[in-house]
């Protein structure tokens, strides 16, 4: 059985900088994984490589046993860390776009989520607040029935109440054969929903453990342990 995400000696260099440095990891299905690390530690680079947007300098990355490409694009649902939607489109038009583009897009589910977040579908995207834009993008990404969800800072710009709703959405919407990778600085907020955590430091994977194991071994929450490992 292939892993949903597998990296073997994965290295990505930008000039002299090694954004990812010999990363080896295997992520199983059915898990929610926190991708944690300080700014510039390689989190976004790893997610982009998995989404097929960056080619590894050396080493290999596999999605469900396949090299990133046409085939894996249909398996991966990626939420970038910045706005990628057309500002002049209405929310409803972005739904049309996703419906056309992805066969696994569940429009009814997306509409139900937008309704519970009280988002008006007739609004133009550019008239939405920063937080609402983030909500729309996350709804679009989570309404796909993907095998691998890659969420880059999905809760950074939203208020705490919405954060709870979004985390609940993530937990209750992913299928049993799917894997969710969430990169974030807001560790305390997402900690209860994590199965496993990855710590990246200067592009190297310094820890891959279960969240409960960290608590068991160190008597600390993941957030407290993170602060210890990455003390400035």
């Amino acid at each position: 059985m292939a892993y949903n995400l597998e990296c073997t000696a994965l290295t990505k260099s930008f000039g002299t900088i090694r954004a990812l440095d010999n990363v080896n990891l295997q992520l199983e299905k059915g898990k929610i994984i926190g991708l944690l690390g300080p700014n510039g530690s390689g989190k976004t680079t790893l997610l982009k490589a998995a989404a097929g947007l960056l080619t590894p300098t050396t080493g290999q990355i596999l999605i469900g046993g396949h090299q990133p490409g046409e085939e894996t694009k249909a398996m991966v649902s990626y939420l970038p860390d910045r706005n990628y939607l057309n500002n002049s489109m209405k929310v409803s038009e972005t739904l049309d776009l996703f419906e056309d583009f992805y066969t696994d897009f569940d429009r009814a589910k997306a509409e139900a989520m937008l309704d519970s977040l009280h988002i008006d579908r007739s609004q133009k995207y550019k008239s939405l607040s920063k937080g609402t834009k983030e909500k729309v993008q996350l709804v679009l990404v989570m309404a796909r029935r993907a095998r691998l969800y890659l969420l880059d800072e999905p809760i950074g710009g939203v208020d705490p109440a919405t954060r709870d709703y979004i985390l609940n959405t993530i937990v209750s919407n992913y299928a049993e054969d799917a894997t969710v990778v969430i990169s974030t600085h807001l560790i305390t907020d997402i900690e209860p929903v994590l199965d496993e955590v990855l710590f990246l430091k200067y592009g190297q994977l310094v820890l891959h453990s279960t969240a409960d194991q960290i608590r068991e071994e160190h008597g600390k929450s993941v957030d407290e342990y993170f602060r210890e490992v990455f003390r400035c």
């Binding site: 937990v171 209860p192 929903v193």
Partner: peptide
């Protein structure tokens, strides 16, 4: 229960 506690179902 996972939804009520806001934790991962595996937990």
């Amino acid at each position: 229960l996972a939804s009520e506690a806001a934790v991962n179902p595996n937990t």
